[in-house]
Structure formats: structure tokens, C-alpha cells
Amino acid sequence: MENHNLTHEFPELEEKINDFRLNDEGFKKMYVNYEEVNALIQHYEEGEQNHTTDDHLTDLRKKRVSLKDNLYSYLKE
């Protein structure tokens, strides 16, 4: 399974990610939301029994991409 942690996705921005996580409430909220969605996807993908539908998992993946795009835009401002 692929690693989708934000610092893995954007290693060149790791220092900025860590700084914003600690000092920027707007970024922190988006970051926590991203990590929660990512953890939920990992839980469903790793589980021997999948307790969700394919449509729900697809929706979660779309949400993760959207959050990642928003976070990247925020970091690049």
C-alpha cells in the first residue's frame, strides 16, 4: 500500500508543513482532516474484511485528493 502522509507526498515542503501544523490554525484543521481521511482509507484497505462499499471508498479517496490539493495550494501561497 502506498504512503499518503502529507510529508511523504510533499517531502520538499516537510519543514513548512511542520511549521504550519504548529502555528497556523487554518492549516492545522485541514491537515487533521486530511490525516483522518487518510487513516480511514488505510483502515479499509488493510482490513481483511472491508466494512464499506467501493463507492464510499472512492468518495473518501476523492476527498483525500481534494484536501491534498487545498493543502498544497495553502503551502505554496
Rank of each mutant, 00 (worst) to 15 (best):
F27S: 04
L6F: 09
H56P: 09
D54K: 13
M30E: 02
E15W: 06
H51Q: 04
D54P: 08
E48V: 11
D19P: 05
V37I: 08
R64L: 13
L60E: 00
H4Y: 06
H56R: 08
F27T: 03
S66N: 03
K62M: 13
Y34L: 10
N5L: 03
N23S: 14
L71T: 01
E9M: 14
Y72K: 07
N50I: 05
N5K: 03
N18Q: 08
F10H: 09
H51T: 09
D24H: 14
E48H: 11
L71Y: 05
T58P: 04
K62D: 14
N50S: 12
F10D: 02
L67Y: 01
G47S: 15
G26F: 02
K29V: 01
E48S: 10
E12Q: 15
K63Y: 00
I41V: 15
E45S: 00
H8L: 10
N5R: 02
N38M: 11
G47P: 12
T53D: 01
D24K: 03
H43M: 06
L6V: 09
E35S: 00
V32T: 12
E45R: 03
E9L: 12
F27E: 00
E36R: 13
N50Q: 06
Y74V: 14
N70C: 14
P11W: 12
E15I: 11
Y31L: 09
L57N: 13
M1A: 05
N70G: 10
K68H: 01
T53Y: 00
D69H: 15
S66P: 10
Y44M: 15
E25Y: 08
H43R: 12
R21L: 00
E35Q: 07
N5T: 14
K16I: 13
L57M: 10
T58R: 05
T53C: 04
L67N: 04
F10R: 09
N50V: 14
E77L: 12
H43Q: 05
N5Q: 07
E25H: 02
L60V: 04
K63M: 11
D54C: 13
S66I: 07
S73W: 11
E9N: 07
E48N: 13
G47V: 06
V37T: 09
D24M: 04
T52P: 09
M30H: 13
I17D: 00
M1W: 05
E14F: 11
A39L: 04
T53V: 13
E14Y: 02
K16C: 05
S73R: 11
V37F: 03
F20C: 15
E2K: 03
E77I: 14
N33V: 12
H4P: 06
F10S: 01
Y34C: 01
L60C: 05
H8R: 01
R21K: 12
E45D: 08
T58D: 08
